[in-house]
Every structure is written in structure tokens, then in C-alpha cells.
Simulated assay, not measured.
Amino acid sequence: MATGLRVDVLGAGIVGLTVAEELLRRGHDVAVVDRHPAGGASYAAAGMLSPAAEVWHGEEEILRLGLASLALWPELAGRLGVGLRRDGTLLVGYDGGDLQQVERQAALLHRHGHPVELLGRAGVRSAEPTLARAAGGALLPGEASVDPRAVCASLLQRVVLRGVPRAGAEVTVVATGASLPRPWTGLVSGVRGEILRLRSDDPPRRTVRGWVGGEPVYLVPRGDGRVVLGATSEAHAAPPVVTAGGALRLLSAARTLWPALDRAELVEGTARDRPATPDGLPLVGPSGVAGVVLAAGHYRHGVLLAPLTARLVGDHLESGAIEPALDPRRFAGVLPEGAR
């Protein structure tokens, strides 16, 4: 078993920082390399720990992996001294067509044996009195949320941060989000997400993920009246910016679902690239280049999967263990020659 390795982690987002903290606890010599720590997707992320709400047809592995990682979050949050809200997730369909999306999600979860409680109009209103009358919904118990900014701030106090890599590092863990270095650049592409932050005297009690006229939207309460509003997703080649169109879609859908939005203070708008892989699953494990391990491509699931990713990287360095679904070498046929 390899112990006491000299490891550089490239990238100080929530994934890279959690990996670094895990490796430090295992006794390795770790430095995190990033000139702009915690400034990427983690800075914008809503912090939903929602494996059941996130799973879609064809992406069922996320449910298995997400549940495994969710189970690790209470210990991590306790160790870092950050709050963990465990009020569950409420899926809401505003009209009949939207409710069909909720029912499809519930049916998928039911097939996988995951608990889900379908709700009618009255049930939705009872579960979340701040919402407008909706056609129906579903309650996903046990799901949670966390503030990624608070998590990153706590992790940054526990790691050594550098602007450049160290000479003589035995292992490099690449956790640079949507901007991977060569020869792995083509394995990840940026998908812009726009996030608005508000402050309200009547926030939702729990995370709400809804559809309004087919438009997806989510509301994540932070505490102290803060609410994170999001759900835009757009593949593009330009730098991520908050657009008038994206903000308008978010505000319009959220206002229909959550009338208290009219009285809320708009505090901040943020846009960042989510790092997407061709099959929607992260890259965690051997890169094809000796001494380099990937921990990247988490797309919408970086916050949720951070503790599981950290454990997988640590186990791989110490025992060679690999999670097959996340093995980067599944893309060996499209990797540049230097990484095969």
C-alpha cells in the first residue's frame, strides 16, 4: 500500500479541495495548485445533494454513485463545521404537462427501488406553503443541500495552496473542472449554467425542483432568507456570462411557481461552465499517463460527488482500486496518443 506520497492536486474547486483534504487525512504530502481558488463552478453551484432528483433516463449510474456519496456528506460537513440541510427535495409540476415530467421521474425512481411519495395539489401546498397552486408533485425524502462556498472556505483553511506545481511531485491529480490540460482537453466541454441569488422574507422550506410550462427551475434555501435560483444549461464556446435571456427565463418560471419572488431582493447573478463529459459521468481514476490521476468532468454533480471522488482517488493511490463506471480509460479510443 502506497503511503506518504507527494501529491499535487491541480484545481481548488470543491472536488480538488475535497480530494486534497482526504489525502492529507490519509497521511500524504499534498499541495493544491490554483491561482484562483474556489472561483469556478463551485462558486456558482447551488449545492443540491439530490441524487434522486438528478437522475434521468440513461443516467441511472448517477443514482447509485450519488446515494453512496450522499451517505458520506454528514461526516464531511461535520468535520468541516458547515451546515447540512436534510429536508428532502420537492419535485413540482405546475400544470398537467409539467406533472407528467414529475411522474416520469417518480416512475424511474420506483423502478430502482428508491422511495418517492407522489403528491396532489393539496399535498404540494402542505409540503411547501410558499408555492403557488400546482398540478402536483413528489417528495424525495433524505436529500440534502449544502453551501459550496462555505465548504470551499473551510477546506481552504486545511490545505496548502500554491500558484505553481511543486518539483518532485510523485502524483498529480487533475481536478481542473471544464478546462483540462492536454492531452485530456477534448474529454470535457463547458456547459454554461446561470445562477441568481436572492434574499426573501418568505423562502421555501426545502429544495424545490419544478417545471413551469416545460421550463425547469430550482429553488434552494440557504438559511437567513437566502435562496439560490437556477437551472439554465447551454453548451457554448464563449466565456460564461449571465445573459438577459437566461435571467428572464429563470425569474419568469420561478415567479410563477414561487409568488414571493416579487418581494425578494436580487443579490447576485453568476455564470460558470459545468464540466461535461461525452457520457455525462465523471472521470475519476488513471489518466493513461503514469503518475497522473483524473478527478474531473463532474457536470451537474460536482458538489454531490465530491466526497465519493475523494475516497475513490485515495483508494486508487493506495490500492489501485477503480470504480469501473468512472474509469477515464473508457474513452481510450478518443484519447490523444499521449494518453493511451
Rank of each mutant, 00 (worst) to 15 (best):
L266Q: 10
P286C: 08
E21P: 00
A41P: 12
A150S: 14
G230D: 10
V191R: 08
G177I: 00
S200W: 14
G285F: 14
A150W: 02
L266K: 07
G320W: 14
D98H: 01
A231S: 15
R300S: 03
I62G: 08
V217R: 01
V160K: 03
V241A: 11
S154F: 01
G338F: 02
R64T: 11
L251P: 11
V55H: 03
P204A: 01
L84Y: 12
G142S: 04
Q157H: 12
L266F: 15
V242R: 00
R104Q: 07
A271M: 03
L161W: 04
A276Y: 08
G333M: 05
D202Y: 07
H301I: 02
G39V: 05
Y218S: 00
A339K: 09
L76Q: 06
G302T: 12
L229P: 03
L312Y: 10
E59A: 09
R125S: 12
L261V: 15
A31L: 05
L198I: 04
H28N: 07
V220F: 08
P275C: 12
E54N: 05
H112F: 10
T277V: 10
P259F: 02
V292P: 12
H36C: 04
L76G: 11
R300G: 02
G190A: 12
G214C: 04
L294D: 09
A271T: 01
V241I: 03
D95H: 14
G93V: 05
M1V: 13
A238G: 08
G39T: 06
L261F: 08
R133H: 06
L90R: 05
A178Q: 01
A144E: 08
A45T: 10
Q157I: 00
V19Y: 10
P204L: 04
D262T: 03
S42G: 15
T185P: 00
D34A: 13
A135S: 11
D315I: 00
H301C: 01
A31K: 07
T89H: 05
E318V: 07
